[in-house]
Design a protein around this nucleic acid. Structure first.
Lengths: 113, 113
DNA sequence: CGGGATCCCGCCAGATACTG
DNA sequence: CAGTATCTGGCGGGATCCCG
């Protein structure tokens, strides 16, 4: 499982996981609760090919768990693992800073309204 | 200044800034204190072309400030702005989770020693 | 419904060389 | 020392088609 991630620096390791365009957004969505494949696809506006590969990465890394229900039509649900749930504190920090930063941008915009 | 970042979702906005391979690492380095160009280059193992463009981005986004000293040889120092310093709490979360995740990887490694 | 296979394009980031 | 300019390869990620 993700042997290439056996790093030493926590920042480098975290960066490798967050580097994609969608990792943070997917993790945030899953932190809100279990999601089905199509729910993620709709709510994020991501193509299914990209979503599929992103989810596969997160699953390989042990952060997301995938549950398949033997039904017709098939149902697959994604949720955070234990280590994935620990990531929620990072998401909370990112969210708080994101709001601060958006405020900052508006406060310093060139053409003040 | 970074008008294209005027977003609504704090996660999307943050993601746009952190997406690069080096943003988090550069910000962490600068959170430790003011750094000169060559210091960053050495300590991060990044090429100077890549570092230059990454720093220029962070400066445009208002997160990093650049100070030029009129000396010979020239000296340029980089540090975090106010909104940049607020990012340190995100870095702290990332660091804590990174350690947790590294522990998790070792605990779940295939060939337990 | 979930997701793999393939094609393709744009951009990130490294290498190299040049400048003040 | 601190950059910029240019070229280039690789890869992320979108579009499309196909499959169980």
């Amino acid at each position: 499982m993700a042997k290439d991630l056996f790093g030493i620096c926590p920042f480098v390791t975290s960066q490798k996981i967050l580097q994609g365009k969608w990792a943070i957004l997917v993790l945030h969505e899953l932190s809100q609760g279990t999601r089905r494949f199509n729910e993620l696809e709709r709510e994020l506006g991501i193509t299914h090919a990209t979503l599929s590969s992103q989810l596969k990465s997160l699953e390989r890394e042990g952060i997301v768990s995938r549950t398949v229900y033997a039904e017709v039509p098939p149902r697959v649900e994604y949720s955070l693992t234990e280590i994935g749930r620990k990531f929620e504190s990072v998401l909370a920090s990112i969210e708080a800073w994101g709001y601060d930063y958006i405020d900052f941008l508006h406060a310093n915009r060139p053409t003040a309204s």
